[in-house]
């Protein structure tokens, strides 16, 4: 394994299976967001968690605004990890923009993946009326970037000053490391622009890997219209409307999410009956 990549992306491999199951977080969050569902797959898979460069506990020195100014840098992160762990026919589970990153990775290196499981994916957040409803106007998205700047500047300063003022309290530092959404304002801004102003609609028809779209109800970020559009446009895709509501079913409704992934993968081994 390529230790440099594994450290750069803070890759954690666990579980008893032989097939890899790679979990890709959504915008700006770290691998901590998988902690409610990933352990459920450790019995049957080799679970792979990671942070994109610039997020979580990745190596910040490896960040370059040039590489990560659009999604292709993040796609390359996933492919680098696949190469480092020698993944073939892996199950890829992505949340939000993580889904889109997985889709693009699968187009570039299909042999790495067997299935894609996509939670709340969207190929384009901006409305392109009358042909396409993404959910948001350009002004909404520009407002989001501004809102992020206001929030992140405060968070970043707070985190930095708290750590500096308490060098003798490692527990506090550990807790701050747990602040899985902490991200440098400049990195957050670039990632947000790469995510929310992307238009990957043309790529959907190029996907050759079978995919499951998990669509939750009342998802403001990726509305039902978008999930249905993805299913219509992606060959070999299935679509499941969840009972779960909101944009983070893997956190708010982990049981249903786990169950649907298991059903799709056909590993509902009926352990209770055996």
């Amino acid at each position: 394994m390529n230790q440099t990549i594994l450290q750069r992306n803070n890759v954690k491999v666990s579980g008893k299976g032989t097939q890899y199951m790679i979990f890709a977080p959504g915008f700006g969050c770290s691998q901590a967001m998988w902690r409610m569902i990933a352990p459920a797959f450790e019995e049957d898979y080799r679970v792979v968690l990671f942070d994109y460069v610039g997020t979580g506990n990745s190596d910040l020195q490896a960040y370059s605004a040039e590489r990560y100014n659009d999604l292709s840098g993040y796609v390359q992160d996933v492919l680098d990890i696949c190469d480092a762990i020698d993944a073939h026919n892996a199950i890829f589970v992505g949340h939000s923009v993580g889904s889109m990153i997985g889709i693009l990775a699968s187009i570039r290196e299909p042999k790495r993946f067997q299935n894609l499981i996509l939670m709340g994916p969207s190929p384009c957040y901006e409305n392109k009326l009358p042909d396409y409803y993404g959910g948001f106007s350009r002004e909404d998205l520009a407002g989001l970037i501004e809102l992020m700047e206001k929030n992140f500047v405060g968070w970043a300063n707070y985190l930095a000053s708290t750590v500096m003022q308490n060098p003798d309290r490692p527990a506090l530092a550990a807790e701050l490391e747990e602040s899985f959404c902490s991200i440098q304002p400049e990195i957050a801004r670039n990632f947000a622009v790469a995510t929310f102003f992307a238009d990957n609609r043309k790529d959907l028809s190029l996907v050759t890997i079978p995919a499951l779209i998990l669509q939750s109800k009342e998802d403001v970020i990726a509305p039902i219209e978008v999930g249905e559009y993805m299913q219509r446009t992606m060959p070999r895709s299935s679509y499941k409307l969840m009972n779960a509501t909101g944009h983070c079913p893997h956190m708010s409704h982990p049981e249903e999410t786990t169950q649907l992934i298991r059903e799709y993968l056909g590993i509902l081994i009926l352990k209770d009956k055996s």
């Binding site: 959504g26 948001f136 998205l141 929030n151 959404c181 909101g246 983070c248 708010s252």
Partner: peptide, 20 residues
């Protein structure tokens, strides 16, 4: 919420309140 705040709320409120 304003449209922009809706997105922001969904991205951050849920993970923060559930995990922290």
């Amino acid at each position: 919420l304003s449209n922009s705040s809706r997105i922001f709320f969904r991205i951050y409120f849920t993970p923060l309140i559930l995990l922290n």
